[in-house]
Computed example of a mutant assay.
Amino acid sequence: MKKLILNTLAVALLLTTACKKDNNNNEIATGGAATVTASNYGFDGSASLGKFSSTKAGITQVSINGVTTFNVTAIRDGGNESITLVLLKKAAVGKIQFGSQLANGGIIISKDYTKAGDGALNYSTDNNGTTMSGGGEVNFTKVDGNNVEGTFYAVAYNNAKKEAFVEQGSFKGTIK
């Protein structure tokens, strides 16, 4: 989980500090405007905290040396909770599943995005709990140029093997 979080933060830092195209066909882009919602989400075995809604979301797709990474990052309006989708491939219509045995990327659900290094506050689909494995799915329903839409869900665990979940999630926005 720490590796996925650190990689996500490194990509986010790279994207916020650079916006250019170089001579090696490596494309660097800043995040495009997006909205992200989920009908339910929660942490540590609690009942649903209700709806997650973010207008502070961004979508990026970066290709470096032939490797493409697609990211959606959203901070809940009025709070510090965040959801980050990290796909190790280019956006394309279809489903992508996540779990500890799949190398497709993952989903990180955070209680406080300002404390990305705190393993107790950040939950990843790469981690496993006592009786379940973390996992989830992203379904791209529309990819039209730089405009993308999709749905997602996830079950994720922190370093103490406590569970977080997000249900009936959706994203819509422009890749930058």
Rank of each mutant, 00 (worst) to 15 (best):
Leu15Ala: 13
Gly45Gln: 12
Leu4Phe: 10
Ser82Thr: 06
Thr174Glu: 10
Tyr153Asn: 15
Thr55Leu: 09
Ser39Met: 11
Gln101Met: 15
Ser46Lys: 13
Ser63Tyr: 07
Lys111Cys: 03
Asn71Ala: 04
Asn158Leu: 07
Ala29Tyr: 08
Asn158Asp: 12
Gly50Leu: 09
Gln101Glu: 15
Tyr41Glu: 03
Val166Phe: 00
Ser63Leu: 08
Lys21Ser: 14
Phe140Pro: 01
Glu81Ser: 08
Arg76Ile: 02
Gly50Ser: 06
Tyr41Val: 05
Ala12Arg: 11
Asn127Thr: 08
Ala10Pro: 03
Asn159Tyr: 08
Asn80His: 09
Thr141Arg: 06
Gly94Thr: 08
Lys21Met: 12
Ala154Glu: 07
Gly42Tyr: 03
Phe152Cys: 05
Leu49Arg: 07
Gly105Ser: 08
Gly134Phe: 02
Thr16Met: 13
Leu15Pro: 02
Lys95Gln: 15
Ala164Phe: 04
Asp112Phe: 03
Lys90Thr: 12
Ser110Ala: 09
Ser82Lys: 05
Asn65Asp: 11
Ser110Gln: 05
Ser48Phe: 03
Ile107Gln: 05
Ala57Glu: 00
Leu121Lys: 04
Asn7Phe: 07
Ala34Phe: 06
Tyr113Leu: 00
Ala47Thr: 15
Asp118Arg: 00
Ala74Pro: 10
Phe98Tyr: 12
Thr114Gly: 01
Lys89Ser: 11
Ser170Lys: 13
Ile5Asn: 01
Leu14Phe: 14
Gln168Asn: 15
Val148Cys: 11
Gly117Ile: 00
Cys19Tyr: 14
Glu167His: 09
Ser100Cys: 11
Phe165Asn: 00
Leu9Cys: 09
Ile75Glu: 05
Ser100Thr: 15
